[in-house]
Design a protein around this nucleic acid. Sequence first.
DNA 1: ATGTCGCATGGTA
DNA 2: TTACCATGCGACA
Length: 955
Amino acid sequence: MATVVPSSSSSKACYNSDCKELKSDRPKKGWRLRTGEFAELCDRCGMEVGSPTSASSFSILNKTPKRGFKVKNNLQNDISIFRKKVDNVISHNSAFEEGRFCEIFHLNASGWRTCETCGKGIHCGCIVSSTAFMLLDPGGIECIACARKNIILPSNLPWPPSFSIQSRLTERLRDLSGKNWSQLAGSGPVPWKQAPSLFNTASSSDRHSDVPSVVEISSVEHIYGNERLPASSLEKKNDDLSGISPNWNVKLGAREMIFMNGMRNDEKSSSCLNMCQQQSSLKEDSSTQPFGLTVPYASSNERNGQIGVTGNHPQQTPPPPHGKQFSGPVHIALDSSGETQVRNGRPRADARGRNQLLPRYWPRCTDQELQQISLDSNSVITPLFQKTLSASDAGRIGRLVLPKKCAEVRPEAYFPPISQPEGLPLKILDAKGKEWIFQFRFWPNNNSRMYVLEGVTPCIQSMQLQAGDTVTFSRLEPEGRLVMGFRKASSATPSDQDNETNKTGNGYSTHGEVELADPSSWSKVDKSGYIAKEALGNKSSISRKRKSSALGSKSKRLRIENEDLIELNITWEEAQGLLRPPPNLVPSIVVIEGFEFEEYEDAPVLGKPTIFTTDDVGEKIQWAQCEDCQKWRKLPASALLPSRWTCSDNPWDPERKIDQHSQMNTNAFTQAIHIGSCSAAQELTAEQLEDLLPPCNSVVSKKMKSAKQDPDNVEALEGLDTLANLAILGEGEALPASAQATTKHPRHRPGCSCIVCIQPPSGKGPKHKQTCTCNVCLTVKRRFRTLMLRREKKQSEREAETTRKKQQPQLPQPPPPMSEILLDDDSLPCSNTGDSSSPNQNREGNEGSDDDPNRIKSSASPFKGQIDLNIQPEREEELSPSSDSGSMIKLLHDATERYLRQQSMSNSFPGDTSGGQSQKVGEEAREEKLCNGVVLGNSNHSADKEHAQTLSMKV
DNA sequence: ATGTCGCATGGTA
DNA sequence: TTACCATGCGACA
């Protein structure tokens, strides 16, 4: 009875071809026909159907011409039995009312089966009916009602209902508890042992031949002969399904066909409503529908049907095709325009919350790709999932992180279960047929597991993949082999765009919703397949606008890599220059690896790069350049400027107040207060600016020239990083920018010339001779010297401590105070007031202890006769006295003395508050300031201040 | 110094 | 809040 053969309304027979009855003179209305008319049923079949109320209750069903499906296997259903049963039912109710009519005009009525438990006939050939039964492990099916009774039975339906139905069917299943559904869902996937074909441990013949395993989307032509659904029908269908299936009508050209074997309920997709024999009820929330017959993937109709694409589980792998119904390609449904329907592939999933495979893993393969994958076989391809390669995936580590859902047995058991972290080797074919063997394994992670494929590097390289590209894992049926396809990021499918850039919060394309509501847009959508590609080139302003993109963190990272690379093409130094501490926050000081870092509770703020200095009265100021007039403006040091700052945003310039014609970029806030003006003259001369600019922004020759012209400035600059850089440059030819890069500390600012910032990164930069007296070398030497002094003192203290210990051996020794542990080499001469810290802070207090012989290293330096600027003073400290460091010490001493003599003309800094120290200490402290611009061993507050003082210059 | 392995961490949905 | 997962990182070879 489910096979409804369209017939002329003038026919006297009941429209139900299985009925054999003659319709009466007043036939009952049945479902809506493609012509827009309603099927005329006999009194019995159409009983109680003709009333408007009844009709409305079936509106979705009636108005929804469905895509046709074929059952790929050759399961012949005992329709006669079913007819009898239906007839029995009909004797009580209208068959149509009972929803036992399949809405599809099944020409061949394939797919009818009987429940193994109750014998109820169920059409298994369409998506909707897939919710009405479940496959049984031993074969056969069971209606949903019977399944409820055996709810703990695992479902044989790994694929959820691909399209949810807001229908009477749903209501009928509403009483099924969520818990039950959950349980069903949890059992959704077929246990791995039931799907051995993937690893060729069982032939296809082992499978249950009577299981309607593969349901394919057949072309409308196939179902309807050469007829096609009139546009009106399609429209009606979409009207009915509006709000149900936002994505399902996303269509592209045939070659852009995307596979989709299912949709979440909230996608509410629907392509085929098959109201067959629904005695059970679905939960209203179709998302909880755990069952689903294989939702057909779209497949290529090219290559004479050699490519079959299914969404079935291996267990449901169809037997070798035979017979006209089961052979040939899986046809994708065509819309009225004849274009191939495209869907975002969703592998089977139980659509239940966390058991659901994230949309980003849904396989979206073009048939071209599948054609690529299909090789030359007649295999059916089952896209499983895809993974957009992260940097880690594509990196040298060779580990491809697998989605847990795809890796674990349930519910997305694409890979064999592994219980040991070592996992199993997996053979995966690439599109060329080459076999790769990856280690499928996991490691524990947060009470969970993290699954990876190891050893993918050769494959990745072979495919020339990189981060952002996508690999697709499919299964080749009936061989059951895993196939790995790929898609370059540059050739991302439109659905990728749809899913990754157009996703709204719920992960579904708004396109789909719009398009669903307007079927006429289908053709647009079809084209959009290519348009979307073009849109990709635009780097999708949409994606940036969308706050909640479907992109994961991975994708965001990728996006940065791929799209914002240019925008991020700034150096670390520049980035540091952009960082500003959050306003009104005092940083805490953290010493890491001997280096001092300012740590803020809040993240640093990206601000406009400015130049910090002090004015002639010793007040900290900063200079900022107007974005409009390019003039430099003096601002308080505490000012935090936006990245785009103009004179009009300058409320600190009362003398340069509102200039009406320069308010282009003024916001309301700044208008309300004092506002600067671009018309105001710059307070900074070009030469002064030249001096202010950090070396990276200033031509060295100009700087030197400027220095010559202004001895005062050169004094300020020479004591800073400029001098260090120049010293490095002075070694010979100018170094490329990369060679000049230093390992500046995170809070480095222009002008900071602490030893951390002035030394080139490890392995970079020229090697300095022992006799070199450049600023960097002198700094290193001086630090070394102070280290030695400190070490001596430490040792003597330790000896004294040991003596005390011997006198009081029973008393536990408190840990040394932090000031002692973290004392900087230069802090020793300074006060040990506990606030000592510096960017150079080292741990020689510990590392330099003599009682740690492991730390004594040979001084055999690979750079004999040279000074490695990358050498760490604390390491130097560890030099063995027996080594040739003695000469080095002497050299250091000589250089230091020479340097001190050179600096003897320098006056004490006004901000030098290191009173109370010995003269030597004071000199050293000053010495540090002169050389590094940062008071080593001082608190960060004073250091910052004095840093600015060091930068002080008469502007 | 470099690569690998195993796990931990933290960002994100 | 939790789970996932991209990536960092220490240990080790």
